[in-house]
Write a protein that binds this DNA or RNA. Structure first.
Lengths: 236, 236
DNA sequence: GTTTTTTATTGAGTCTACCTCAATAAATCT
DNA sequence: AGATTTATTGAGGTAGACTCAATAAAAAAC
């Protein structure tokens, strides 16, 4: 038969180029289907190679995921570091971190979901490669918090690592809420709500504070009155 | 051979009993190995039956997980509801919810990890069965928050659902931190740290400013007194 | 330009784990 | 005791991760 299906033409590419190509396909496929649903055959097909080729570049499906994660974290860290350098004040820096994280979630949700699902609960995977990157990333927020305590902007009795967990955990859950409700994530509004709550707390301000200011004013009025009457008496 | 390996003796059991037995084994195996690592053969072996038997009680491995989750949530909801009924005041109720959740994590960590990993990121699974239970559970905290806003104990501009995410997300991340550091979870201390931060926020109280306002007024009163006596002395 | 060497690429094949189903035998009913 | 029901079995089927000897494209040597 002259019209037999053309077998895929073999082409050899420089190692680095093909590796990048496979990595790119992996990122796309994982992001779309999730780790469990994605097959190595899918990734190979997307990259235009055959399954075996993938395994000559990456030891396993898991290793492929780790490589994808590494790329994700590296750009995220670089962007966050750059952004933090351009913001002054602890409060604003925390607001920046929160917003940055929300934007990352919103713009690359598929991959974020995979990373959260696969990386966090898997101790083995953490030990291997991602733990250090994640530490470096969330360490950025941690340092801001520690500076806040040192400079007295933040309470001295807070535990920075707990606050960091509150920030990232809160963001994660809030984002999921949006995903389930099938609405677009309203980054700006959500970022403010989270930041306001974390910074200011949720219990109503001690109204006594307000009235004590008022009380101070009232006392000053009495002072004035007493001075007036003193003066009047001395005049008479 | 007379001493051939005894084949497993077949025993028929009431449907409900065997189902409970398999479910119990599933819970144990999932909890120990995680969903991905656990095999249906493992579960069957633990229950003392053969793989096929499992499938005559549960449609799939996934269905087995869902059943395990359902059991987990049902007791958790019942316990939390009971506990909340015995605590007065919004602040204390929130503290109770936080502590209860931490205790559940600490005492049944293996299963919690599986549920978080498998249930949350899997939309299909949520739709099927667990969404409603999770909603009911976290709804308990939500109602406390709403009551807090209604009665004026909490700020009126907070968004209860966001605070709920902050609470549960924060707990989750904080617990993971402990797991990675391979230390026992210090439930009491962590619960207080989380609750204090969420309730009171992290920025330093302006109450110091307020009290200094009051202090200033009191000093002014003393100034007035001195002026009075000065005047009186000058009169005499 | 031809031959040799190197190695990227291939695809057939292995293995493990989920799941199916016809056969079997334990309990129950008549 | 025999008939009936159905829980239980274990031998496959299938999908997808992973391996490896063969192949051919590029590079090197001549």
């Amino acid at each position: 038969m002259a019209t037999a299906i053309q077998p895929r033409r073999r082409t050899r590419r420089p190692r680095a180029e093909r590796e990048a190509q496979i990595l790119d396909s992996a990122r796309r496929v994982f992001s779309e289907k999730g780790y469990g649903e994605a097959t190595v055959a899918d990734i190979a097909a997307d990259a235009g190679v055959v399954e075996g080729t993938v395994y000559s570049y990456f030891e396993s499906k898991r290793a492929l995921l780790i490589a994808v994660m590494r790329g994700f974290f590296e750009t995220l860290i670089a962007e966050t570091e750059a952004g933090l350098g351009a913001v002054r004040g602890v409060e604003n820096q925390l607001r920046f971190v929160i917003r940055q994280q929300l934007e990352t979630f919103a713009s690359d949700f598929g991959l974020c979901r995979v990373i959260i699902r696969e990386a966090r609960p898997d101790l083995a995977l953490y030990d291997e490669a991602i733990l250090e990157l994640n530490r470096r990333y969330t360490g950025l927020a941690l340092r801001v918090l520690e500076e806040g305590v040192a400079t007295g902007v933040l309470r001295e009795n807070i535990v920075p690592s707990v606050i960091r967990d509150l920030i990232y955990g809160g963001i994660e859950h809030a984002v999921w809420r949006f995903v389930f409700s099938e609405r677009e994530i309203e980054v700006a509004a959500l970022a403010d709500q989270l930041a306001d709550s974390i910074l200011g707390g949720i219990v109503r301000d001690r109204s006594s504070e307000v009235s004590s200011t008022l009380e101070a004013a009232i006392r000053l009025e009495r002072v004035a009155e007493r001075l007036e009457s003193s003066l009047e008496r001395s005049m008479s």
